[in-house]
Design a protein around this nucleic acid. Structure first.
Lengths: 120, 120
DNA sequence: ATAATATATGAATAATTGTTCATATGTTTA
DNA sequence: TAAACATATGAACAATTATTCATATATTAT
């Protein structure tokens, strides 16, 4: 057996053909990175509750904080995460900032997820 | 101003009616928890790559490790996460364990996510 | 039975993340 | 202009997580 080749893992590749083909089909790194960021954004209960709330109604930061029984600061930090992944957008009106869902992709993903967890 | 009431947050609720209504519509805690777990499972690049690979072909652990240039142990740990959220299932054949996507919910969620990140 | 191999897993460690606290910014009202 | 208020944000801390390392389990081949 030839041990000169660099081993990529500590076991032997079993189906070289499949591995090579799938390697060719793998999406670019950047796309995977963005996708992971999106799901990371959805991976926290507080943020999911915020998104659910916004799917029902436009809301300002204080309302969300009251709804979830959390500090204004905590909510504000989480809203930034949701803004960064373009899951929510906002609109200022005086000193109040109203948040809404960015589009209905968000609702669709949310619903798919609920289907999965419900489908016991 | 009355300071005897317990403050749920450090700012004033602005739209009491909306907050109360949405509070009534909020899904049960357990459902939100499960949903967060699901998205947490999807929130890592390595796991997303594994899922993408499995959407193309059934694969054993060594193949996945080789495909991603990672250790067998790392992949095995990540596969456990994916099993726990029922995103993958497996089938033993001798000492080789073949993994596949659990169902096509997974593909659907994956695709929704890609749509969102592509939609610049 | 023994050796080789595929996979799983516990412990340890480094990196990431959610919340709090203190404070800053910007808008409105007095 | 000063005080009040809505929101944002940097730093700190605790909790969570991804990977590595060492090792265990189970199956196959010798």
């Amino acid at each position: 057996m030839n041990n000169n080749e660099p081993k990529m893992c500590d076991c032997t590749v079993i189906h070289v053909d499949v591995v090579e083909r799938v390697k060719g089909e793998m999406p670019e790194e950047k796309k995977m990175y963005d996708l992971a960021e999106l799901f990371k954004s959805l991976s926290d209960q507080t943020r999911l509750k915020i998104l659910f709330a916004l799917s029902k109604n436009e809301m300002c930061v204080c309302d969300i904080a009251a709804l979830l029984g959390m500090s204004q600061s905590a909510i504000s930090h989480q809203l930034r995460v949701l803004r960064n992944t373009r899951l929510v957008k906002y609109q200022k009106s005086g000193k109040v900032v109203y948040y809404t869902l960015d589009d209905n992709h968000v609702n669709a993903i949310f619903k798919q997820g609920l289907d999965h967890v419900a489908h016991k």
